[in-house]
Amino acid sequence: MDTVIDAHNISKVYNPDTIPVHAVNNVHLHVERGEFTALVGPSGSGKTTLLNILGGLDHPTSGNVVINGTDITHLGSNKLIDFRLHNIGFVFQSFNLIPVLTARENVEFIMLLQNVPKKERDQRVVALLNEVGLSDKMDVRPAQLSGGQQQRVAVARALASKPQFILADEPTANLDSASAFNLLDIMAKLNREENMTFIFSTHDQRVIERARRVITLVDGSIASDTAQTKTD
């Protein structure tokens, strides 16, 4: 198997000098390419903090995160930004598309940052938006899209940079059932057909049922890490 994430002894303590809050506590995590993994747990269990650390958006208080052979824990700010650009795709709970750009431009934007040639960009944008079923909404701005459609654009955007893996923080939390199922189908298909690694935090039982691996966090620590045979 091909290791994508190797996190050792990760801890994150907020307010260490006043009232310490242990958001993540000595977490060891090993993720292989092609996993479809759910991080579950009650609110405040440290799911988002752990995702942020794995995504290089936050630094752990101790421990280290190795992604595809690179220890990102001690990378400088600019190097970390560059690392994220080329290695990690993000899907946020509230979609977070750039409101002034169309669906096409939102997806293309990442590739522009990567200096991908125009012809390649154009082809990939069309392919990705087709893949998420939004070929008819390419020139529409986020405000004119439904929540589900926006989240599908966000998935296409996350895929645009050809990342090592995609981190999705509560991707279905703001979606109705139909949109949530639709999004999960797309993510599962990408995982199955393109071997794209997905790690998502969720409360949503529908999402948990689709995951092949479920990691349960309680008070910042891994309470259980189970493989599920029943997938999509």
């Binding site: 994220r84 750039i98 940052l113």
Partner: peptide, 16 residues
């Protein structure tokens, strides 16, 4: 603020 945070998260460097 949030939008700028997203841009940075996605990989827009400080110079850009």
């Amino acid at each position: 603020t949030r939008e700028i945070g997203v841009l940075m998260a996605l990989g827009m460097n400080k110079l850009k």
